[in-house]
Deep mutational scan, measured.
Amino acid sequence: KQVQVGDEKYTFDTPEEARKFAEKVAKEKNLKVTEKNGNFHVE
């Protein structure tokens, strides 16, 4: 599963790991997490 933050992409083995990372980054940057096709976008 992938997490996209701006132009950066991070790959994780499980959706749970990806979601945790996305939520942590979103909180730090005051952004929101959206899920698209099983991948997460922080925007």
Rank of each mutant, 00 (worst) to 15 (best):
K1H: 15
K1M: 12
V3R: 00
V3L: 02
V3S: 01
V3C: 05
V3H: 01
Q4E: 09
Q4T: 14
Q4M: 14
Q4K: 10
Q4C: 15
Q4Y: 15
V5C: 14
V5M: 08
V5S: 03
V5H: 05
G6S: 05
G6C: 14
G6W: 06
D7F: 08
D7L: 10
D7W: 08
E8H: 13
E8D: 12
E8L: 14
E8Y: 12
E8F: 13
E8I: 14
E8S: 09
Y10C: 09
Y10F: 13
Y10K: 04
Y10H: 07
Y10A: 02
Y10T: 02
T11S: 10
T11P: 04
T11D: 10
T11K: 07
F12R: 00
F12G: 01
F12P: 01
F12E: 02
D13H: 06
D13F: 05
D13C: 13
D13Y: 03
D13K: 07
D13W: 02
T14C: 10
T14N: 10
P15V: 15
P15F: 13
P15C: 14
P15N: 11
E16L: 04
E16S: 08
E16N: 05
E16K: 03
E17M: 07
E17T: 03
E17Y: 00
E17L: 09
E17N: 07
E17D: 11
A18S: 02
A18Y: 00
A18T: 02
A18E: 06
R19D: 06
R19A: 07
R19S: 06
K20F: 07
K20T: 07
K20Q: 13
K20A: 13
K20G: 08
K20I: 12
F21L: 06
F21Q: 05
F21H: 06
A22H: 01
A22W: 05
A22D: 04
E23M: 01
E23G: 00
E23H: 04
E23K: 00
K24S: 12
K24C: 15
K24A: 14
K24E: 13
K24N: 11
V25T: 08
V25C: 14
V25L: 13
A26S: 07
A26D: 02
A26P: 00
K27C: 14
K27M: 12
K27E: 10
K27Y: 10
E28N: 07
E28A: 09
E28Y: 00
E28M: 03
K29P: 04
N30M: 08
L31E: 06
L31H: 08
L31N: 04
L31C: 13
L31G: 13
K32R: 12
K32I: 14
K32C: 14
K32H: 12
K32E: 09
K32D: 08
K32M: 12
K32W: 07
K32L: 11
V33C: 13
V33M: 09
V33I: 12
V33G: 03
T34V: 14
E35H: 09
E35Q: 11
K36A: 09
K36R: 14
K36T: 11
K36I: 14
K36G: 06
K36V: 14
N37P: 00
N37T: 02
N37F: 06
N37W: 01
G38I: 00
G38S: 02
G38T: 01
N39C: 13
N39D: 11
N39I: 15
N39A: 12
F40N: 04
F40P: 06
F40C: 08
H41E: 11
H41G: 06
H41S: 08
V42A: 04
V42G: 04
V42W: 02
V42Q: 04
V42R: 00
V42S: 03
V42N: 04
E43D: 12
